[in-house]
């Protein structure tokens, strides 16, 4: 039990830091560059990614292990995962709209955007490739989402600060953001050794 928990936690930790899906796999780059100018928008987008990734990764695990694998249809994983993610975001938006206007104003606008976020699909594909158990997948989904959000918030914070600095023209915007992302990726690898997945 303790072993299971520690493996669960190690996986969660590595998904947030050492194996950060954004900084080690460079997935979910477009919103990372496009929506990281302001902390406020970044927070909304990040929270939406956490929500969607936490739920779709385990749901896709169930889909894969209970339908695709028994029927020998592993090669359909990509298309099935995309369908499920799309339906989930649509459904979530309807629920949020019903439940709270202010939550919808903060999160709702990002949900349709996230349908095509590669980090979310990436997390589902990785959980298959890495043969995670259901519990591990849950930890990985939650950790992956939080890790993506953490990287986005860090980037937004840095970009808010450097917005006031003058840059060589060619580096303005995406140029400097990619350099920062590279340095951040290196910094995040420093977490290796604090915990490694079992």
């Amino acid at each position: 039990m303790i072993a299971a928990f520690s493996s669960w936690f190690a996986l969660f930790f590595s998904a947030v830091f050492t194996q950060n899906i954004l900084l080690t796999n460079y997935l979910g780059m477009c919103p990372f560059l496009g929506a990281s100018r302001e902390l406020k928008t970044s927070f909304g987008l990040g929270a939406a990614v956490v929500l969607v990734m936490t739920f779709t990764t385990p749901l896709n695990w169930l889909l894969y292990h209970s339908i695709l694998l028994p029927l020998g249809l592993e090669y359909l994983a990509l298309i099935a995962f995309i369908s499920l993610i799309a339906a989930f975001t649509q459904l979530t938006e309807l629920v949020i709209m019903r439940v709270s206007d202010s939550l919808h104003a903060a999160l709702g606008i990002f949900l349709p955007l996230i349908t095509v976020n590669c980090a979310i699909l990436g997390a589902s594909l990785f959980m298959v490739a890495r043969r995670y158990s259901f519990l591990q997948t849950t930890a990985y989904g939650l950790g992956g989402g939080l890790g993506w959000m953490l990287a986005l918030l860090a980037m937004a914070g840095i970009r808010q600060r450097i917005a006031k600095n003058r840059l060589p023209r060619g580096l303005e915007g995406a140029g400097i953001a990619l350099i920062i992302a590279g340095i951040m990726a290196m910094a995040f690898t420093a977490f290796t050794g604090m915990a490694t997945p079992a």
């Binding site: 339908i67 090669y75 339906a87 309807l94 709209m97």
Partner: peptide, 26 residues
């Protein structure tokens, strides 16, 4: 056939879910 059938079935279920959600939630 199995592949096509499963994808079709999956998408039908998901679409049905959305239609129901649209009907009851939206």
């Amino acid at each position: 056939l199995l592949g096509v059938g499963v994808v079709t079935a999956l998408n039908t279920v998901l679409a049905l879910l959305l239609v129901l959600a649209e009907r009851f939630l939206a």
